[in-house]
């Protein structure tokens, strides 16, 4: 399985260069009062996204799954390696944007940047896990071209959903219920939101992986 992850990295060495260049722009554009809290998360998610899509694009372009599945490898491993690779990309993304942020601070470039922290990592990881969990079953079932469309939709949803949710709550819930919900949430201990999100995401990923395994198991190449 590690060989498969290694493969996904070796075929897209270029992506790391792109990620580095991207992170420069990232800080140049989003290091402002509005985005400063989210910049590391956004950067990491974007980098992981680029890497997931790029490796699948190569697999698709050359129909390389024919070769991969002819090697002494189980199909399960091929599926799980894609999930594992996504996690590796998150780590790569965190390292790249984290380092870039640190470079900016140390070199004294006048941008409102703080150091990367654990919270960034947890949220970036959760966001990628969420995206990957929705994306991979569609990719394995319908192939690369269709899954790209889904990707676009997912991206948009991720951007607009929080806002839409808030306005939905405002319109459809009377003030009392909404207030009560907010109070309940505030009553939770500090570790709870992150942990709950993480637990939900892990559960979702597990379900997604099972679905992907089932799909891939009966696939014909």
């Amino acid at each position: 399985m590690l060989n498969l992850v290694r493969k996904d990295i070796l075929i897209q060495k270029k992506s790391f260069l792109i990620a580095l260049v991207y992170s420069v722009f990232l800080f140049a554009i989003f290091s402002n009062e509005v985005f400063r809290e989210a910049v590391y998360i956004m950067g990491t998610v974007a980098i992981a996204y680029i890497m997931v899509v790029t490796s699948n694009a190569y697999d698709d372009k050359y129909k390389s799954e024919i070769i991969i599945n002819s090697l002494p490898v189980k199909r399960q491993a091929v599926v799980l390696s894609k999930y594992l690779a996504a996690a590796v990309y998150v780590v790569a993304g965190l390292v790249i944007v984290g380092a870039m942020g640190a470079v900016i601070i140390i070199s004294g470039i006048p941008l409102p940047v703080r150091y990367i922290n654990l919270n960034d990592a947890v949220f970036a990881f959760s966001a990628v896990a969420l995206l990957a969990s929705l994306y991979y079953p569609v990719y394995f079932r319908f192939g690369y071209a269709l899954s790209r469309m889904l990707n676009l939709i997912l991206f948009l949803v991720l951007f607009f959903a929080p806002g839409a949710l808030v306005s939905y709550i405002r319109q459809n819930m009377d003030y009392g219920t909404a207030h009560q919900l907010a109070v309940r949430l505030q009553d939770l201990p500090a570790w709870a939101p992150g942990t709950l999100v993480l637990a939900a995401v892990i559960l979702l990923t597990a379900v997604s992986a099972l679905v992907s395994l089932k799909i891939y198991e009966s696939k014909d190449f």
Partner: peptide, 30 residues
């Protein structure tokens, strides 16, 4: 599959890679 060598009519290799790079991907599987 460990003991099968396969050759297909079309190349399904990652064409951006060199021969050696592609070999380095295949080799550890065997």
């Amino acid at each position: 599959k460990e003991r099968i060598g396969f050759v297909y009519d079309e190349s399904h290799y990652y064409e951006e890679l060199t021969i050696n790079e592609m070999k380095r991907i295949i080799a550890p599987f065997y």
